[in-house]
Design a protein around this nucleic acid. Structure first.
Lengths: 210, 210
DNA sequence: CCCTATGCTGAACATCCGTTCAGCTGGCTG
DNA sequence: CAGCCAGCTGAACGGATGTTCAGCATAGGG
């Protein structure tokens, strides 16, 4: 209970610095985030930022590994669940919830993935690995049409699932959505499901055919 | 013929500045592109950059409108082609060729779209408009299953088609592709076609079903 | 009690940024 | 030929940036 009654001023200065840097990078990007801005937002002096993390790059690296670990902690546990056929689906839903809970996580992940940082590239590759594994399982179960390029198709499914995060602003502008609103996610998920259903469940597609 | 025997040193200084700024923005982004770097790459003094474009923002705006016009000039003409049912397909192929011809165009468009610049947002929205129009036409022709959220599904088709540009580095790393190589594009297009065929052509899907 | 380690700061440093400005050039026009 | 003007430069400006450093307070162990 007491942990819920703590404000930002109760945190270590080092933790506040990390949090401030995370928010600023998510909002403005690495290059536009200055040591002085981090310090001001954390309520400390610029020198303390350097003192704790060695350099500006040290802060950037620290929050990068922090977020990567956070993401893995929250997604990896799902992989050994009971029904592997829906592992990817649960992964997406869990990710969706994390993005909703941690306000700037979506923006940060978008930057991590799209800035071409090695962390982002590796994380995406692992996600494709899992997606391909999942798709292969579906095929063995007869729930998906066999594909000649399984990995590429898995990447496509992943991209569509992550699109609200990866391409959030683009979609919000083009479709009039607002991904802070739960209904926008639902609308996207429904459309995704409808578009892919006949591909993944050919039997259903046949009955839907005019 | 003589136009093909001209090197960079034959261009106006203003044109060289624009070209240098375009390349640097594509490679590093707007914020990391400095006036001095532009000047050095163009072989002129930093002062001349300001002299011709007023300010750094002036250079950025100039290449932005330049590229937007270039893209429209090369894609808009396709829309009044004879067979509207394949307008989107031709648009994608044409875009693909443009990206192949102008080396850094893909990287620049990626930045334009993902940096959240208004130009990028509007351009993407127009592309979704066209994609939705195209999808509606397919539905009327009985070539696509009717969708309840046509615009969202059109956006998904567009995203998959543009993925090699939008998410180039991510896909290259995750799938071991190289979009400088024609075959990587082919592989992606083939997988895309296979994934979507049963959704767009339910009759074919039925025959493919096991 | 002293002494040391830790957390932290203010001031300063060199460097880079975008921009300004006086002045140089060469070719065109009167 | 004189005048002028567009193209172009080197040097400098004020400001912002990342980083350094000497020194402050304070808590804990000898």
């Amino acid at each position: 209970m007491s942990t819920q009654l703590t404000g930002p001023e109760d945190l270590t200065a080092k933790a506040r610095i990390r949090g401030a840097a995370f928010a600023l990078v998510a909002e403005r990007g690495v290059h536009a985030t200055t040591v002085r801005a981090i310090a001001q937002r954390a309520g400390v002096s610029p020198a303390l930022v350097i003192h704790h993390f060695g350099s500006k790059q040290g802060v950037i690296d620290a929050i990068s590994t922090w977020i990567v670990e956070y993401l893995h902690r929250n997604t990896r546990e799902l992989d050994r669940g009971g029904d592997p056929a829906q592992a990817l689906q649960r992964r997406l839903v869990r990710f969706e919830r994390m993005v909703a809970e941690v306000p700037l996580l979506g923006a940060y992940v978008r930057r991590m993935l799209l800035d071409g940082q090695p962390d982002g590239l590796d994380w995406f590759r692992r996600a494709v690995d899992l997606s391909a594994e999942e798709l292969a399982h579906r095929e063995r179960m007869g729930k998906a049409r066999p594909s000649t390029d399984l990995r590429a198709e898995a990447a496509m499914l992943l991209i569509l699932g992550f699109a609200p995060v990866l391409l959030g602003p683009l979609l919000e502008h083009a479709l009039g959505l607002d991904f802070d609103d739960e209904r926008s996610w639902t609308r996207w998920r429904d459309a995704e499901s409808e578009l892919l259903t006949s591909a993944l469940y050919p039997g259903v597609a046949a009955t839907d055919a005019p």
